[in-house]
Amino acid sequence: MAGSRTSATEVLGRGHPWLSLAPALCVIAVLFGGGLVLGLAGSFAERGGGWSLDAWAQVLSEGRVWRSLGLSLWIAGASTALSCGIGLGAALLLRRSFPGQGLARLLFQINLTIPHAVGALGILWLLSQSGFLARLVAGAGGIDTPADFPPLTQDRFAIGIIAHYVWKEVPFVGLILLANMQSLGDDPESAARTLGAGPFAAMRLVLLPLLMPALVRAGAIVFAFAFGAWEVPVLLGQSSPAALPVLAWQRFTSPDLAARPEAMALAMLIALVSALLIRAAFTARR
């Protein structure tokens, strides 16, 4: 698109995009591609040399793995849906000025720079049954012991994990959408309004479809991260079922050497499921 904008032959690098791309492609091919290939090879490796399907057979026959997969899908799905929904709401809120808008925007940006490890620890100390929130409620006389407070971390619905991802990703989604709204300007919606559409109809029928591609892209990134991250469920997750990445890391660091190919198989399963689902989301858009 941009390339067709200029007809000059004098633009540097024109006709040689591969030269500019080669260094980055090489690095990604070796580090990322090599990592995937070796991970895959590792999942088929047998101790003492040779190849086998044992690790895959073992992993796929375990009920625990399927339960973990289900949990991770729930975590990633719920986190993505909530982040996108709330992020959209927040973006719509923040594009109009109101008292405190500047502060909210600043916090959005700060939040984006916070490492996941820090956020997860903060959520743990905020939401656990003896955490900050529980103590506030206890101080107000709402509960007597930690057990009276609803379990929000290490709980069966992974509320703590999802809360962390939503907390971290709402600003991410929100800022992407804000940027898109800025570049769209007010024109599409005001055009619809002049044609007689109400404010909500204008938003739903005009603005939302225009934002959809950005929303799907942001959602895919959120989904992939929430599906595959280890740092967060390891702090906030329950013992069983554990999120799939936690299970993979457990096998990777197990003193039992036979568990390593299984760890690799689990890691590949994570990559495969994530890639397939995201692909499906993009195809459905078209």
Binding site: G35, V37, P245, A275
Partner: peptide
């Protein structure tokens, strides 16, 4: 797609293999 793939494929999947590389 190739250059953006590391964002879409979870880190742990690659991390364990990258160690070997």
């Amino acid at each position: 797609l190739a250059l953006l793939a590391p964002v879409i494929v979870p880190g742990i999947a690659v991390g364990l293999g990258i160690h070997g590389v």
